[in-house]
């Protein structure tokens, strides 16, 4: 008898527990949850984003196209470049995702294929036409908040740039390392900024520059700025959470090893210092749930297309380049499909 009584009490207790959960949902005074504190010795930390910032792209599959322009190599007659085009693949996965530490790691692959008229007239044009340019890289990004206001942002990039083909890969000894460290403040949910330094190849050759991060969303939540000066800056228009537009620029650059460039006695290790300023409109929209499409169009302004002998830091010196070249400006577009992060 006592056993059956126990079973009855146990079953009633379980039932009552379920009932309690259900009824708790019905009516509640939400104001009571305003006066609360974190349990234990937990701390609050600031996050890496401001309101309405564009979503992190886990995977990106894109295509980049530059229209016709002239290539002036040294003092030779200009050559006509009909197009420069290629795929751009990117990834950026959160490896550590804690409130007090974020670590993202990504792998990128970009290519630029050149279509040049009369490319056989110059070794550099021939090299570009036959081999194109490729970048394969690994990026690691760390966001380390110290409290709810201050943080450090650090990024290191390991790139292999050159005229290699994937089956005939370039030696890893030619890996180019760039990096950025920024100390910042998150003033509130709509404003984040920071100052730092960067070792960068964005102007083609290795350089060390100060950088300024500034991400802001206006109180209206319709406009904002996303920038890391001088690398990139964008004015953002938020139509809704799934439709964004940007206007701004990005300085893109790398130094590329040209193993197929022959015919110059004074250049033992030719490196193309390619750098371009892209002034552009960008439109991003969620196609369905986590699949976003991005379309970009604008002007590609040439910053550098010179050739040096080896990888070195020129600083503020005025050493001449081994081969001084110029590109006229061109229109470009870029389209990509992206899987965005939760």
């Amino acid at each position: 008898m006592r056993i059956w009584l126990s079973i009855f009490v146990f079953a009633f207790a379980l039932g009552a527990q379920g009932q309690e959960g259900d009824t708790a949902v019905v009516a509640e005074d939400f104001s009571m949850y305003a006066d609360a504190e974190l349990a234990g010795d937990a701390k609050r930390f600031c996050t890496s984003k401001v309101f309405d910032q564009s979503p992190n792209k886990l995977i990106s599959l894109g295509y980049d196209f530059q229209g016709g322009h002239d290539l002036l190599i040294g003092v030779a007659e200009p050559l006509r470049v009909q197009a420069v085009h290629g795929i751009r693949l990117g990834s950026n996965f959160p490896v550590i995702s804690k409130t007090n530490l974020l670590l993202n790691v990504g792998i990128n692959y970009w290519e630029a294929n050149y279509q040049i008229e009369k490319a056989e007239n110059h070794p550099l044009a021939r090299s570009l036409q036959n081999r194109g340019l490729r970048t394969t890289g690994v990026t690691a990004t760390v966001f380390k908040p110290f409290n709810d206001k201050n943080f450090i942002f650090a990024q290191s990039v390991f790139d292999l740039n050159g005229d290699y083909y994937l089956p005939d890969f370039q030696s890893l000894t030619y890996t180019r390392v760039s990096g950025t460290v920024i100390y910042g403040w998150k003033k509130h949910d709509r404003l984040l900024y920071g100052f730092g330094v960067s070792r960068t190849y964005r102007i083609g050759e290795a350089n060390y520059i100060p950088v300024f991060m500034y991400n802001y969303t206006a109180p209206s939540r319709k406009w904002g700025v996303e920038s890391v000066f001088p690398a990139r800056a964008n004015l953002r228009r938020t139509f809704n959470a799934r439709t964004l537009a940007f206007f701004g620029y990005e300085l893109e650059g790398q130094t590329y090893r040209l193993s197929s460039l022959r015919g110059f006695d004074n250049i033992m290790n030719p490196e193309l210092r390619r750098s371009e300023l892209r002034i552009r409109f960008t439109f991003e929209r969620s196609l369905k749930d986590f699949i976003w499409v991005s379309a970009q169009a604008g002007l590609r302004y040439n910053w550098s297309f010179n050739v040096d002998d080896g990888d070195f830091f020129r600083g503020f010196g005025n050493q001449p380049y081994a081969l001084e070249n110029d590109l006229s400006n061109a229109l470009f577009f870029n389209v990509s499909v992206n899987l965005v992060s939760p």
Binding site: M32, Y33, D35, A36, E37, L38, A39, G40, A42, P94, S97, K98, T99, S341, P342
Partner: peptide, 10 residues
Amino acid sequence: RTDVWKRVVV
């Protein structure tokens, strides 16, 4: 992506 939630005491 993992978000870390902390318990609060009301």
